[in-house]
């Protein structure tokens, strides 16, 4: 009985310490762009999914470029990235787990800069913005710690100056319990936001080949991947910029954005030149005309020979 009480006491103390660590120590309080973690729970059961947000608080600065590298916590299984709520508009380094398997990294830009999120209901307060959501699942009992080991932030000053940064850390307790309720996600039935793919070329990009450039966002579950189809070809997974197979631009090009819930948004870039198709049409017309002329000539000769 005493052991049970002692265990209960230690367990409660651990939860309290972890809670304090997550909600206070993880949020630095100094005058510099602050990168921190936020999670809805301090204790995760085995097999339970937990979402961890990486936040940016610009602390009065305007930040337009960020780079984040962090360690993946032990005792948890990494399940993926969710950029649906990210303030990053274009990723320079797409979110990925490094080859070593124990770190995650991404970088990107925020055109115009980020100076703190405005809630229209409380406009006087600027809130931190979400850079990325990490999805984990509790695996084995223990405290999983994550640190932001490489963080950069650049000011929106037109000169590319680096901002001072401070970072927080994450401590997530995975307990031995197996009973938990799944996160009640609202089903995402909305396709990704509309976008406008662009076909262009520049001698600084793929030896001046025509490329397809595209990007969009999905505000609910995030973009999973893109697919491209040229003319009557097949859908192919693609990343931007995508070098077109048909460099004559004679066929329509279709781009499909697929979100993590499987919803799709398809946009099209119309063919600029129809030269081969036009040539075929002209050839057919000329051929038919020659054939008709030949038939008419045969008929006339036949009539003349009949007289």
């Amino acid at each position: 009985m005493q052991n049970t009480l002692r265990y209960s006491y230690i367990f409660s103390l651990t939860i309290f310490v972890t809670f304090v660590t997550v909600f206070f120590a993880a949020t630095p309080r100094v005058e510099a762009a602050a990168f921190s973690f936020r999670t809805s729970t301090a204790v995760v059961h085995q097999g339970q999914e937990v979402h961890v947000d990486i936040l940016l608080d610009p602390e009065g600065e305007t930040i337009n470029t960020v780079s984040v590298t962090g360690t993946l916590p032990e005792h948890l299984v990494f399940g993926g990235f969710d950029d649906s709520a990210s303030i990053v508009s274009f990723f320079v380094d797409d979110p990925k787990v490094t080859s070593s398997g124990n770190q995650f990294t991404f970088s990107g830009i925020i055109p115009g800069g980020f100076s703190g999120l405005i809630d229209p209901f409380a406009p006087s307060v600027r809130k931190p913005g979400t850079l990325m959501r990490l999805i984990f699942t509790g695996k084995t009992p223990g405290v999983g710690r994550s640190d932001l080991v490489g963080v950069e932030a650049y000011l929106n000053d037109g000169e590319g100056m680096r901002a001072k940064v401070v970072t927080g850390s994450l401590n997530l307790l995975v307990d031995g319990l197996l009973d938990w309720l799944p996160i009640a996600d609202i089903p995402d039935t909305t396709p990704p936001l509309p976008f406008t793919p662009v076909v262009t070329r520049d001698f600084l990009l793929f030896q001046n080949d025509y490329v397809l450039i595209f990007n969009t966002k999905d505000k609910e579950s995030g973009i999973n991947h893109y697919q491209v189809k040229e003319g009557s070809g097949v859908w192919t997974r693609a990343v931007s910029p995508y070098v077109l197979t048909d460099q004559t631009l004679s066929e329509d090009v279709w781009v499909k954005a697929v979100d993590r819930a499987g919803n799709e948004r398809i946009e099209v870039v119309r063919a600029r030149a129809r030269t081969p198709a036009n040539m075929r049409t002209v050839g057919v017309i000329v051929g038919v005309a020659i054939l008709l002329a030949f038939i008419i000539m045969l008929i006339r000769r036949h009539r003349q020979s009949g007289r």
Binding site: N64, T65, S67, P111, G113, Y154, G158, G160, M161
Partner: peptide, 22 residues
Amino acid sequence: RVDLNSDGAVDLADFSILSSNW
């Protein structure tokens, strides 16, 4: 043309300059 701050490398500082002129 790509090295906006002429430091001999294309890095995040160049992306920051590009972003501020977006």
